[in-house]
């Protein structure tokens, strides 16, 4: 019975893709590859959980969680942005490790290591098509796909989205053309923070609500971004789905299951090798 694995893989993969799109928007606009992305999502989920425990209206709690991730991301962009603009891509990425550790430290300080789950009312509603699918899973899949599409359209059509693409294409020229670089960058930090918050909530409901675990989920997300060659939203979506499905399906067979957790690395490495073959690579060049 392979169907349940495909479904679970699609759901998880779509969430990797959703996170990946958030990372990509930020990377393309500001040149910052945010390794703190998982931690942002974790913070959003933990905070939402805490507020639900406090008997806050769940929808409100989720909204506050997402807002907090947005605010954290924006704040980091505000404080570190001027410095990040002056350093190379590798230093930028390294600086975000600081963000990851900072958020993780606060989370470990605020919350102990007890079991937690983010339970949605839709978890209990489900139907069977050879395998059981819950409404939550459908929502994850639909929301992730919708947001990826909406982000594409936003970048393509909206003035600020166009400005973001202009920054990604040629920063200096874009600024000479009158783009308010700092403002657009902050907007990218905010948008990516919000996407991180949303995917953090959904990921925690589909995997584990644990700060450390969610912080490290940045790894498969990064792999999805690699598949998108650090530039393509569609490529990132496909990358996330492929990683999710391969990981789940390979876990179904005894001969491949010990290696299923290595899927993000394998997929990312294959893509890099393939691109090297065609001599179109490296982060620096892609920018």
């Amino acid at each position: 019975m392979i169907l349940p694995f495909i479904v679970a893989g699609l759901v998880l993969g779509s969430l990797f893709a959703l996170s990946g799109v958030g990372m990509l928007v930020l990377y393309r606009t500001t040149g910052v590859l945010n390794f703190g992305y998982g931690a942002l999502g974790a913070a959003s989920a933990m905070l939402a959980w805490q507020l639900v425990e406090l008997r806050l209206q769940p929808v409100l709690a989720y909204a506050i969680g997402i807002l907090a991730a947005t605010a954290l991301s924006l704040l980091f962009g505000f404080l570190a942005g001027p410095f990040l603009a002056t350093v190379n891509t590798l230093t930028k990425a390294t600086a975000t490790l600081g963000l990851a550790l900072f958020i993780l430290g606060i989370m470990l300080f605020m919350w102990d290591d007890k079991a937690r789950t983010l339970r949605l009312p839709t978890d209990t509603i489900g139907f069977s098509i050879g395998t059981r699918i819950t409404v939550t899973q459908l929502i994850c899949l639909a929301l992730a796909t919708a947001i990826v599409i909406a982000t594409s359209i936003y970048l393509q059509r909206s003035p600020t989205g166009t400005a973001m693409r202009a920054l990604a294409s040629d920063r200096e020229l874009a600024s000479m053309l009158g783009i308010r670089v700092r403002r657009v960058e902050l907007l990218a930090w905010a948008v990516s923070g919000a996407l991180g918050g949303i995917s953090g909530l959904l990921l925690s409901s589909q995997t584990r609500l644990e700060p450390v675990f969610l912080t490290f989920i940045v790894i498969p997300v990064l792999a999805a971004v690699v598949v998108g060659r650090f530039r393509s939203l569609v490529g990132t979506l496909v990358g996330g789905l492929v990683i999710g499905v391969v990981q789940a399906v390979s876990s179904a067979f005894p001969s491949t299951s010990p290696f299923s957790n290595a899927t993000p690395f394998v997929v990312a490495t294959l893509v890099i090798l393939y691109l090297q073959r065609r001599k179109v690579v490296t982060i620096e060049v892609a920018r």
Partner: peptide, 9 residues
């Protein structure tokens, strides 16, 4: 898009 970017002002 190049022209659109320039028109944002």
């Amino acid at each position: 898009d190049n022209l659109r970017v320039a028109s944002l002002l």
